[in-house]
Design a protein around this nucleic acid. Structure first.
Length: 507
RNA sequence: GGGUUUGUAGCUCAGCGGUAGAGCAGGCGGCUGUUAACCGUCAGGUCGUAGGUUCAACCCCUACCGGGCCCGCCA
């Protein structure tokens, strides 16, 4: 058994392929299959001359997603997907698939249809690419921390209390006692950092907020490093080095997948610049348009985007009219079909631009009227990050909008040493971290202020009683970084089976 | 939870007062080392559901149900 991924090693050799038919094109003497085996996609040629009439008749009956084995020669051919072609000398059919509901290009389907067929949708090329990038990111995360002296530890998934005391949790039953699915492993990671120095957790996280946006899932995977003797500056250095490592490894090893996704990799290569670090207070000024970044004004950039959307509609409308005029004048059927398809596509694009035209003025208003001291909304993050090329770190946040465990800025208790990493191009927050409060008195006071039970948190407070040290950490949302790296407009494609507010638990 | 938009063939959409169209997928025929192949042909629909307006409703109105997008809550 030989995998498509390794075809370059088998050039000129006869191999055995086992996989599925992704697509088929037929002629009198040749059948061209696009086959897949999980490691890649490849064209297989079934020729009447080679196979003989009887086998060729069998080959004609192959449907999309039929499972089969092909024995054949691997031939280099630059024109093909993956650069190689399999020329069959014999085939063995495992199972003829019945009519397959998903098209070869899944973008020709609607969101709902694909989500309901997720178990099959995962076979599509784009999904294959996303899952492979996801895997590369996961491995690069482990690799980064393992190479840097971190120990992977696991926090419990069942907990007796809300970690931050704020968000909605899924309740379950633990032998008659209420238990909650974990929304963060951080507090436990802090305890483990006091035992092991540098640790990270990597596990599922659950939030029962009724959030219906492209950046939310009810169940997602989070990576939470925690380091003893790290202050906020060291934390930010680590975040930057970490993100650079992950992105560069994906760029190096998953070129084919990023290309399949049509990702503009130059945008990702921007991570090799220094990440701008600005305080919350500075970020507010940038957002409001009162302060510029490299000559770019956040509000002006939005106005330009708005004007561009309006112009695009004018241009597309003109093209559509021209096409319609041409069709009225009389054209051949093929040409008419082509023009109709083009116009339908343009009409969809116009709808997207119209959506922007409705949204951008709201975003501008929200940015200009932003009240210092509040948390950034989704659109605010988009507006803010549009003026930066690299991910930007926003630090020193107002105390009242951040969690109780964040360390107060020395001499200014209105601010805490938290940091958010915002990805460019509107992908928003992917990392949230902070230096943790290590002072017993302050932490105890804040637990009370947040109406949390001192009893429940005594074990956590203990960490400040027995050899308290400055320490920091952060949380990375796996699906959010996958979304950014792949350039996807929604988180739902970044995880094999989404669990999201408003959707069924099937599939 | 709020706003907005949408529901027409298996899929993606067009039609928007006078009793349904295209492309893809499927069947058949043709043609080609093809690249989302192409050409011809056949088949495929009580136009989300329930009321209402009208001589006439896929089209207008109301309600309900189901989607999309944006916002909120948050990673």
């Amino acid at each position: 058994m030989h995998y498509i991924e390794d075809f370059s090693k088998y050039e000129g050799q006869e191999i055995t392929f086992k996989g599925w038919v992704a697509n088929k094109r037929e002629s009198k003497t040749n059948i061209f299959l696009v086959v897949r085996d999980g490691t890649g996609f490849c064209q297989a040629v079934l020729s009447l001359d080679v196979l003989g009439e009887e086998t060729f008749e069998v080959a004609k009956s192959l449907t999309r997603e039929t499972s089969l084995e092909i024995v054949g020669n691997v031939v280099k051919d630059e024109r093909q997907i993956g650069g190689y072609e399999l020329q069959a000398s014999s085939i063995k059919v495992h199972h003829i698939a019945k009519e397959y509901p998903i098209k070869y290009l899944e973008q020709e389907h609607g969101v709902k249809f694909l989500a309901d067929h997720r178990h099959l949708w995962l076979r599509s090329r784009r999904q294959w690419a996303i899952m492979r990038v996801r895997n590369e990111i996961i491995m690069s995360i482990h690799d980064f921390f393992q190479q840097n002296g971190f120990v992977q530890t696991d926090a419990p998934l069942l907990t007796g209390n809300a970690c931050e005391g704020t968000t909605d949790l899924f309740e379950t039953d633990f032998f008659g006692v209420p238990a909650y699915l974990s929304q963060s492993g951080q507090l436990y990671a802090e305890a483990m950092a006091m035992a092991l120095g540098k640790v990270y957790t990597f596990g599922p996280t659950f939030r029962s907020e009724k959030s219906d946006t492209p950046r939310h899932l009810s169940e997602f995977w989070m990576i939470e490093p925690e380091m003893a003797f790290y202050d906020l500056d060291m934390d930010m250095d680590l975040i930057e080095a970490f993100i650079k490592h992950v992105i560069n490894r994906v760029l190096k090893n998953r070129k084919v997948e990023l290309d399949t996704l049509g990702r503009d990799v130059s945008k990702l290569e921007n991570v090799n610049q220094d990440f701008p670090r600005i305080t919350y207070t500075e970020a507010v000024k940038v957002l409001q348009g009162k302060s510029e970044v490299n000559g770019r004004n956040a509000i002006t950039v939005q106005e330009e985007d708005l004007a561009a959307a309006k112009q695009a509609i004018v241009d597309l409308t003109a093209t559509i009219e021209a096409n319609e005029k041409e069709m009225k004048a009389g054209v051949k059927k093929g040409k008419r079909n082509y023009l109709t398809a083009q116009n339908d596509k343009f009409k969809q694009e116009i709808k997207v631009h119209e959506e922007s035209i409705r949204n951008i003025p709201k975003w501008i208003a929200s940015a200009q009227n932003f009240k210092d001291g509040e948390d950034f909304g989704g659109s605010d993050e988009t507006v803010l990050t549009r003026v930066f090329d690299a991910p930007v770190m926003v630090y020193n946040w107002p105390t009242k909008i951040k969690a109780f465990y964040m360390k107060e800025v020395e001499g200014d208790p209105n601010f805490v040493k938290g940091v958010d990493l915002l990805a460019p191009d509107g992908y928003g927050e992917i990392v949230g971290g902070s230096e943790r409060e290590s002072d017993l008195e302050i932490l105890s006071r804040k637990i009370k202020e947040h109406d949390l039970s001192l009893d429940d948190f005594q074990w956590y407070v203990d960490l400040r009683i027995f050899g308290s040290v400055p320490h920091s950490g952060f949380g990375l949302g796996l699906e959010r970084i996958v979304r950014w790296v792949c350039g996807l407009n929604h988180l739902r494609e970044t995880i094999p089976f989404q669990r999201r507010y408003g959707r069924k638990l099937v599939p």
